[in-house]
Design a protein around this nucleic acid. Structure first.
Lengths: 177, 177
DNA sequence: TTTTAGTTGGTAGTTATTCCCAGGTGGTAA
DNA sequence: TTACCACCTGGGAATAACTACCAACTAAAA
């Protein structure tokens, strides 16, 4: 097909199992206690395939841990990001979303339904690798965000953003890039 | 040398003048009234070279229009984005920032001081253009965000994110990608 | 076990943004 | 030039998404 490599489900299941298994060791390595809350949150994050927000993780974890607090979820997700066990994804202008997949990849976002998909994009990864410095700047990371309209949203026909005429004035040339 | 094309100041001054001049016509084309508030806000946005947040635009516009309200600034910036006269930039996890430069470009962000720089990156623009569709998805836009540490921040030495040891346990292997 | 640094939960902020609506105004038609 | 009115604005209240604080609790070293 020649389409880019979307990261699929078989891959995900196997990856998740390994990550959960290694989690305790990672915590100890980082000097963090292995608490039930942390385990529950990493499980929820790794089971998720929808790049959930903190409050969604909270809702899911609460099924098993009714007493967990939202504060703990926020705090813990942030820690996971710091220790490299999660990625924070900031797209458009909603709240932060979290990604348990820490392999190199980028994001495809449907601007209609706001769903996010992981995508491997090797040609983008090499984008700036040949010049470790941009002038004085030290390159840390290069993120690509691909905005699309998914099949569902396209069918619903969301192209209603055109110029709206003021009063009776007939609008002629309202081309938009 | 050989670095990518940062978009400089001469270019900016000339571009700004033209955009301000055309603004009235654009509004009328879109069926929007040309109010003093809108003119002041587009001027402030185009004069800015720092990708300001709404509240920063508000502070600047207030020097000339002490009675303008923050609500109007938010509303107007959002309208500018809709009519294609501005771009909203969402980086890291701060508030939204606005960019008066609507030519094709990408963003370089210093994760230390949070300054943002525009950069032309033609090789990235072509990244997905050869396949207008990613499966069912219709490609709308492809954004690249380059995270760096700028000279100033590097000199201040901000590499203090390493693993912090718990108790007396000696930490050995805390490599971080 | 004992000890204690690290961790948690609940509540009370804070920040950024949006909603609502009464009053004001730009732009059109006459 | 004037009258009209749909559009626009300002200010305060409301909301969403966090974040700070702190007393009580607990994982894990000794």
């Amino acid at each position: 097909m020649g389409g880019p490599a979307f990261l699929g489900k078989q891959w995900h299941a196997r990856y998740r199992a390994q990550r959960v298994a290694e989690f305790g060791a990672y915590c100890r390595e980082q000097g963090l206690a292995v608490t039930p809350q942390r385990v529950a949150i990493i499980r929820a994050l790794l089971s998720a395939e929808d790049h959930p927000r903190a409050d969604q993780i909270y809702a899911r974890v609460r099924r098993q841990h009714p007493h967990i607090s939202l504060t703990t979820v926020y705090r813990t997700l942030e820690q996971f990001c710091e220790m490299g066990q999660a990625r924070k994804v900031t797209l458009l202008h909603e709240g932060a979303r979290y990604d348990g997949n820490i392999t190199p990849h980028h994001h495809v976002l449907c601007v209609g339904c706001q769903r996010v998909f992981d995508i491997a994009l090797p040609e983008a990864d090499g984008l700036l690798h040949d010049r470790e410095r941009l002038g004085e700047f030290v390159l840390l990371r290069c993120l690509v965000e691909i905005q699309v309209l998914c099949g569902q949203c396209r069918r619903k026909g969301q192209n209603s953003t055109g110029a709206r005429p003021r009063r009776q004035r007939p609008v002629q040339s309202a081309a938009q890039s």
